[in-house]
Design a protein around this nucleic acid. Structure first.
Lengths: 162, 162
DNA sequence: ATATGTGCAAATTCTTTGCATTAGA
DNA sequence: TCTAATGCAAAGAATTTGCACATAT
């Protein structure tokens, strides 16, 4: 249901992204620690977005404390290597920011599956807001619905309930 | 900066909305209690959106406990009289749902002022997601930026810092 | 060597829940 | 009357912070 991690299957893009990301950290004067490296490794390998907890579970055993994931993510967000997503359930999720085009998510309200949508309809909107006098304009947009699979499941359980 | 509450200044729309809302609650079998009435009064009078705390502060003294505001809001959201907004700061905000057209907010990252934008660019997006097989499609969209006033303020303080 | 980053524990903040009491219908 | 709604206190859950210790550079 969720995308594999790139346009082709070699896994090299994740690696390249990882290298670039570490490079960026180095240049900005941040230290390359294993928690930071492993967090970035997960985020460049799998698309996510992940909660801090999901992220921590995906790290190799004993790399770091959950608190360090919070701090690592905060750092990565500061330098724009990571983008925060808000699915409206009170838990933040994070994904690697390739910096190319930004995209949005379609989230199933039943099974919480996430599909990435590589289009953004809000450019006109941002332009409009800039014309209203705002600077540094950004936006968040998430789409919610019930996915086809869950609709089928619902119908089935409705039948058995009859 | 934030809108007065309607297209004309009589305040009658808020009252009408309030009446309709109470009517809806009654019809659905909910009891009309003073906390609910007062919460709706605030929400139909001022546009908001408000956090639970802001809402509680706006209620007449001793109408109810903050917890009751949480519960009241939850009820109102259930029956679709209230819509939840998510400004990405971990605190939910609520506004009266007129049920007409939905709208979005432009939030200043500095002063947190909110301007309502009575347009929605996402209809095409929702249609597209429905074609992908999703049902019950909704979306959230908030726009962030630095408002003109705060930009001026920033420039001023940058100057004094020189 | 030294400042930056981490671990652990405790604090914060928003929100929810349990249960006895109150009050709408 | 009789159940839904409230108040108060306490629990929960995600996130942040303080401080001593570890470690990249």
């Amino acid at each position: 249901m969720s995308d594999p991690d790139g346009p082709h299957p070699h896994g090299c893009c994740g690696d390249k992204n990882l290298e670039h990301a570490l490079q960026k950290l180095r240049i900005l004067g941040y230290r390359i620690t294993s928690p930071r490296k492993e967090i970035l490794a997960v985020l460049t390998r799998e698309h996510g977005p992940f909660t801090v907890d999901e992220l921590h579970k995906r790290l190799p055993k004993n790399v770091c404390d959950p608190v360090t994931v919070y701090r690592g993510i905060a750092t990565l967000e500061e330098v724009d290597l990571v983008r925060r997503c808000d699915f409206g359930d009170g838990i933040y999720r994070y994904e690697f920011n390739t910096g190319e085009h930004h995209h949005h998510h379609v989230i199933c309200r039943d099974c919480s599956s996430v599909v990435t949508l590589d289009v953004c309809f809000a450019d006109g909107l941002e332009r409009m807001v800039r014309q209203m006098g705002y600077s540094n304009v950004t936006h968040t947009l998430e789409i919610f619905g019930i996915c086809a699979g869950c609709q089928a499941k619902r119908k089935r359980s409705a039948k058995t309930a009859e």
